[in-house]
Design a binder for these strands. Structure first.
Length: 387
RNA sequence: GGGGGAGUGUCCGAGUGGUUAAAGGAGAUGCGCUGUAAACGCAUUGGCUCUGCCUACACAGGUUCGAAUCCUGUCUCCCCCA
């Protein structure tokens, strides 16, 4: 029990979960995620991990892929109506979400459902659902109040969201629903809907929202401060090293269920990064990523395996000469104007040697086989296939 | 249905006929520094075949020697009244 509620912010209603856990029957524990973006990030894993804990205790985990609700848009924590992804995006995201979720959950023992199964309902049924609440009730939530106060629009569609999420609970007969603290309204609303459909209301458990790598705002893809569970080891390690020291405690506690080790912050952060990389990749990859990190950032070296790039046809006015900005632009996916600026600012190196600010063209022979570097962390191994 | 207001670069946001890729901020990137992809300092931040050229201030036209700034239409959005 204490295990299951550790780190939880609220477990409501008071005492109810304990009663449920005391029963004979395994509980049906629900978590819904809307596949609105392609990747699950560490913030999501806080709740997913809690779900996994219930699973380990023998309860039935119901993972709901909100392929239908993704088209409605969860207003939780939103200060404006969000742009909705297309049906194709949702479908693609849904598939990868599931895969990523199984990095934490036991696939065999997880009931995965798509809520389009039951939410594609007859209009009459939808009206029946809408009859279960009032506009005042739907508007009382904090995020709507703020938007109302600020004169921000609220799409009628957004109003429906809690009803639909609540109906998910009815459809899967949830005993418990998990979510981030920003989900509190929706989770509680589900209780009412279940009640209206003659089911015993679920209890709810909310988890803290993980702060992003900026250490200030919540981790979110759109804010660009996230660490994706599918990020390559080196990238994951680097991103984790970049979090502000004060955020470390939270990361240790919420992601590793551990205390920040005593000692130098740098060491602690390295341990954090190592353990998380190990967890989402495989044992030992954390140490490898760290070695790479040291090589690149501490020793200012070149990582072990870097992408090979064909020098290609970026010919200049004379034969055998390469236009450097174009090569860089193509190789690193930036505009040639930007590449030009980087050269001017001394941000481009060949085998570790800065390229002179006026070197916009170089002979092919001077490039082949060398390592082209932009900034501190982007590298390409140049090869000349034409020679 | 009526009245009012708004659409500017990645985002926020100045600018209301005349050097100018368009103040400022955020973000991002580069350099320096550093235990760190942190903090701090400096710089850069539309594109290109780059001492010049092209495209830009919702969209389409128009007025003008000249428009993001004026006019017309279209689209989108917000507020108030009903």
């Amino acid at each position: 029990m204490s295990d299951l509620t550790r780190n939880a912010v609220e477990v409501l209603p008071e005492g109810r979960l304990a009663e449920q856990l005391a029963g004979e029957r395994p509980l049906r524990v629900k978590l819904g995620i809307d596949p609105t973006t392609a990747d699950i990030h560490l913030g999501h894993t806080v709740v997913l991990e809690k779900l996994a804990a219930f699973q380990r205790e023998g309860h039935t985990v119901v993972l709901i892929i909100g392929d239908f609700t993704a088209r409605v848009g969860d207003p939780s924590g939103r200060s404006s109506t969000r742009p909705l992804p297309s049906a194709e995006e949702i479908e693609a995201n849904a598939a990868s979400y599931q895969e990523q979720a199984f990095k934490l959950l036991d696939r065999e023992r997880t009931e995965v459902r798509h809520n389009s199964e039951w939410l594609r309902m007859e209009p009459e049924a939808l009206l029946g659902l809408m009859a279960q609440t009032t506009v005042a009730r739907l508007l009382e939530r904090d995020d709507f109040q703020k938007r109302l106060g600020a004169g921000q629009p609220i799409a009628a569609l957004e109003l429906l969201y809690p009803l639909l999420q609540g109906y998910d609970s009815v459809a899967v007969e949830a005993d418990v629903e998990l979510g981030g603290t920003d989900q509190k309204f929706n989770l509680l609303f589900g209780r009412d809907i279940q009640g209206a459909y003659g089911q015993p209301p679920q209890s709810i458990l909310t988890m803290p929202i993980l702060v992003g790598t900026d250490g200030v705002q919540k981790m979110s893809k759109s804010l660009g401060n996230y660490v994706g569970v599918t990020d390559p080891p080196e990238q994951m390690f680097g991103k984790l090293m970049s979090i502000p020291d004060p955020a470390m405690d939270e990361y240790f506690r919420l992601l590793l269920d551990a205390e920040t080790p005593a000692g130098p912050p740098n060491e602690a952060k390295r341990e954090l990064a190592r353990r998380l990389v190990d967890r989402f990749h495989s044992e030992g990859t954390g140490a490898a990523a760290e070695a790479q990190f040291n090589q690149v950032f501490v020793d200012r070296g070149v990582p072990d395996d870097i992408e090979v790039w064909e020098i290609g046809p970026y010919g200049g006015s004379e034969p055998g000469v390469i236009l450097l900005p174009q090569l860089i632009g193509a190789g690193f996916g930036i505009s040639s104007s930007e590449a030009r600026r980087l050269i001017k600012q001394g941000g481009v190196k060949l085998d570790g040697q800065p390229v002179p600010a006026d070197a916009l063209q170089l002979p092919r022979a001077d490039l082949a086989g060398r390592v082209l570097q932009v900034g501190k962390r982007r590298f390409l191994q140049l090869v000349d296939g034409a020679s």
